[in-house]
Design a binder for these strands. Structure first.
Length: 825
DNA sequence: AGCACGCCGACT
DNA sequence: GTCGGCGTGCTC
């Protein structure tokens, strides 16, 4: 009997509700070349639209099935994912409620991505008249033809859909293709961010262009703004042009139609890599470092999966241990991954790694151009580079014989992805280490409570570095009670002790850093008279001011508007509020006339220069005082900084999140550790309205162990990680009542499930529905249910089932449902 | 999600 | 009789 070869594919068009391996017939000409891990193009769905798929496996000897469709084309010459990576993708689907394709997409560099477009083109030999005759009386078909002829004979399906709005162009499109007037072509284009970018240039002299748009300045302000900017610059990238003027790509297109602007593609110059550094000898280790190294090295040598916590106080030299460990792993013929929270904040670490390992290091992070990222990815896959350093997504580095994964500052929130797939790099790292018998090293001065718990209970090995480099003493920490300051009539953000300390530091010719630990440090605008704050029309958030383009912008949906001259509600004067760094800067300048105060927050960094530049200015010019947000907390060490002030330790503490204590402790510890890195002794002043708070007291004493002991009790009591995980099911939609109804249905079936004998013992708890932290985004209301429960395979399967059923349920029409584990907010 | 099929009202 | 709007069900 005749049999055929069938490929099992994961498809990009399959949503979570219908994600499963799909069977496709392998055409004879691909039978020899096609292997698992390669990407292909296949027809999918009733309309056979082109979809990308990735080969998971083959099955030979299957009976032919007339219903089965056939693979159209091959996209790769070599597999882009190996067997282990495919296995990881399947595991991610189970663990984080995403599709296999979502997982695969996270693993591959964007430069590898194709965008498949269905294009409708006028068939050869068909003229306008024949075409319109075929359209007959169909209004839809006529409109489609108009669009296609207007755009030069062909148009993308997406374009046609958008032009139609809600109505369905498909019957008309089918009619036209059936008559042979139009034909469908598929184009596979390389994805975004290649080596070129779109640039807009003036097509006519600047004066002429200005003369054309000026009369219509009122009615077409965006066109005017674009031309005005282009007249000044000559040319600019389309992206920047839109950012600075608030114009959309439609504005640019309309300007090209008027003949004022030309759009071109221009080569983007690949950016300079890590600066060349002289190679350095392996670092010398002190006694403690040596002990940690030997312990870790033995674990790595065993070739069995293992995890260890490297708990080392700030300045105890964890990097040197990493370097020696990597060296050894490389010498044994294996490879290593180093994850850091943010590349930009770790230039020193990057430099020392390059000095040690030279070309064997590949750097992967989000601000690399797609092409560069792709190049680095290829170097890793081919074995030319054997150490990958990067942020979260570098955990997927395509390395064979992985022997070691290091997560530096493992408690950092950046290791959890906020986009689908919402994975945590720590868990992916664990899985990869298990796959390849590698060692996972979690390094931190302030480990996450979860990791320390696992270390204390013997799941992780634990190594401690308690001695600071050169035996430096920890800075002396003083807590300033801001309630008392208020009672004494001091309403500013600078307490008396902080003022005095600043004065003394100034007099000694030393430098100070003031830290404002406010999350998402951005600036808002409010009316001085009526107190109104401009809000996004589509989302329930305040708009933030961007000084770079002078506009108010929404960080959730991208809405932007010009900063109004006066309050739209009452006509009053608008004031800037927000990060407060500016206010602190002003207060400092008033208190210390003539002293330079450098400010570093999202505003000054994006507008003027990179924070690296700002920091080097601070160091080289010995600017007396630096005020900043989160970004001053980490990274560089300054010899001459002897005073650190925390303006308000409470800001990150009293928020509704079980990790608030941990985050505040970690931040305060890092900030305090900034003082006195050189020979001089440092001190720190922590200002707070709640000086009796245990987290603040522990941080002031740099007493992690005490903090942990208290925190773990709270976590157990509240049923938070590490004792239970929080599964969050989110429903969103345009109708608030529909979203809430979906949530109530979900809650009921969740409770039904938990009644079953196999789940009773888990003592799970269901909370909500409650509005999400940002209750409305893009006009969609968001509510969520929280299930606090041990994270077992059965529970994950149950949640997955629940989400899938909710997505398929007709009662939930117009509401989308998704799930996440231990989300950040 | 995206597409086809089928039902039904409006217009011719 | 069409055309087009809308609800329902499936995706190899």
């Amino acid at each position: 009997m005749d049999t055929v070869a069938v490929a099992k594919l994961a498809l990009s068009a399959a949503t979570y509700a219908i994600d499963r391996p799909y069977d496709y017939q392998v055409p004879r000409e691909l039978a020899d070349t096609l292997r698992p891990g390669m990407r292909v193009v296949v027809p999918f769905g009733a309309g056979n639209r082109r979809t990308e798929g990735i080969v998971l496996a083959f099955e030979d000897g299957r009976p032919p099935d007339p219903k089965r469709k056939t693979i159209l084309t091959l996209l790769d010459e070599e597999p882009v994912l190996d067997a282990e990576a495919l296995q990881l993708a399947l595991w991610m689907r189970e663990r984080w409620f995403c599709t296999v394709y979502d997982a695969a997409r996270a693993m591959l560099p964007a430069g590898l991505y194709f965008s498949l477009q269905d294009r409708y083109a006028v068939a050869p030999g068909i003229d306008r008249e024949t075409a319109y005759a075929s359209a007959g009386k169909s209004e839809h078909a006529r409109r489609i033809l108009e669009l296609i002829f207007a755009s030069g004979g062909s148009a993308e399906r997406r374009q046609i859909r958008e032009a139609f709005g809600i109505k369905d162009p498909n019957p008309a499109l089918r009619q036209l293709t059936d008559h042979g007037v139009l034909q469908l072509e598929t184009s596979a284009e390389r994805g975004v961010g290649d080596k070129t970018e779109q640039v807009a240039v003036l097509a006519v002299p600047a004066e002429e262009a200005m003369a054309q748009v000026t009369p219509k300045r009122r009615s077409a302000p965006l066109r005017y703004a674009v031309i005005e900017l282009l007249a000044a610059l000559g040319s600019a990238s389309s992206k920047e042009l839109c950012y600075f003027t608030g114009a959309s790509s439609a504005t640019l297109r309309s300007l090209t139609k008027s003949g004022l602007v030309r759009l071109e593609r221009r080569e983007v110059f690949r950016r300079v890599r890590v600066p060349e550094v002289e190679s350095a000898p392996p670092p010398e280790l002190n006694e403690q470092q040596q002990a940690a190294f030997e312990g870790l090295s033995a674990l790595a040598a065993a070739g069995k999966p293992a995890a260890a916590l490297l708990y080392g106080v700030t300045g105890s030299g964890k990097t040197q241990v990493y370097i020696r460990l990597i060296r050894q792993v490389l010498d044994r013929g294996r490879t290593a991954i180093v994850l850091v929270p943010e590349i930009a904040l770790t230039p020193q670490l990057l430099r020392s790694f390059t000095a040690q390992f030279g070309d064997a290091v590949a750097v992967l992070h989000s601000s690399l151009r797609a092409g560069e990222r792709y190049d680095e990815w290829k170097r890793l896959r081919t074995g030319k580079a054997r150490v990958a350093i990067g942020t979260r997504s570098a955990v997927f580095a395509p390395l064979k014989d992985l022997g070691l994964v290091i997560l530096d500052e493992e408690q950092e929130a950046t290791y959890k992805s906020e986009n689908v797939p919402k994975y945590h790099a720590r868990d992916v790292a664990k899985y990869r280490c298990t796959q390849s018998g590698a060692l996972l090293v979690l390094g931190s001065a302030t480990p996450s409570v979860e990791s320390m718990y696992l270390a204390r209970t013997g799941v992780y090995h634990c190594f401690t570095l308690s001695r600071r480099y050169n035996e430096q003493a920890l800075p002396a920490v003083f807590i300033a009670d801001m309630k008392e300051e208020l009672r004494a009539g001091n309403g500013t953000s600078l307490s008396l002790p902080l003022r005095q300390a600043l004065e003394e530091t100034l007099r000694a010719g030393e430098q100070s850093i003031l830290f404002l630990n406010r999350r998402g440090a951005s600036r808002m605008v409010s009316c001085g008279e009526c107190g109104a704050v401009p809000t996004c029309p589509r989302c329930s958030v305040h708009l933030t001011y961007h000084s770079a383009n002078g506009r108010l912008m929404c960080h959730y949906c991208g809405h932007s508007e010009r900063l109004p001259a006066a309050c739209p509600a009452c006509g009053g004067t608008l004031n800037f509020i927000g990060a407060g760094t500016q206010k602190v800067q002003e207060e400092l300048e008033a208190a210390f006339p003539g002293i330079t105060v450098l400010r570093m927050d999202t505003d000054t960094v994006s507008a003027t220069q990179s924070h690296e530049k700002l920091l080097s200015r601070f160091e080289k010019e010995k600017i007396p005082i630096l005020v900043g947000t989160q970004m001053v907390a980490k990274g560089l060490d300054f010899e001459n900084v002897t005073l650190v002030g925390v303006v308000s330790a409470d800001l990150s503490l009293y928020v509704d999140d079980y990790r608030a204590g941990e985050r505040t402790f970690s931040l305060l510890t890092q900030v305090v550790g900034r003082a006195g890195r050189g020979n001089k002794k440092g001190r720190a002043i922590v200002q707070t309205y709640t000086p009796e708070n245990d987290v603040i007291l522990c941080a002031a004493r740099q007493d992690y162990d005490r903090f942990y002991e208290q925190e773990i009790v709270l976590r157990r009591l509240r049923g938070c990680p590490p004792f239970r995980d929080l599964f969050v099911v989110t429903a969103s939609g345009l109708s608030e009542s529909a979203v809430l109804k979906t949530c109530m249905r979900l809650r009921r079936s969740l409770e039904d499930w938990l009644e079953r004998p196999e789940f009773r013992a888990l003592e799970a708890q269901v909370l909500g529905p409650a509005p999400a932290s940002v209750a409305k985004v893009n006009d969609r209301y968001r509510y969520r249910l929280t299930l606090a429960c041990r994270n077992t395979r059965a529970v994950r399967a149950m949640v997955a089932h629940l989400v899938r059923c909710a997505q398929k349920d007709k009662e939930n029409k117009g509401v989308s449902v998704s799930a996440d584990v231990d989300p950040l907010d």
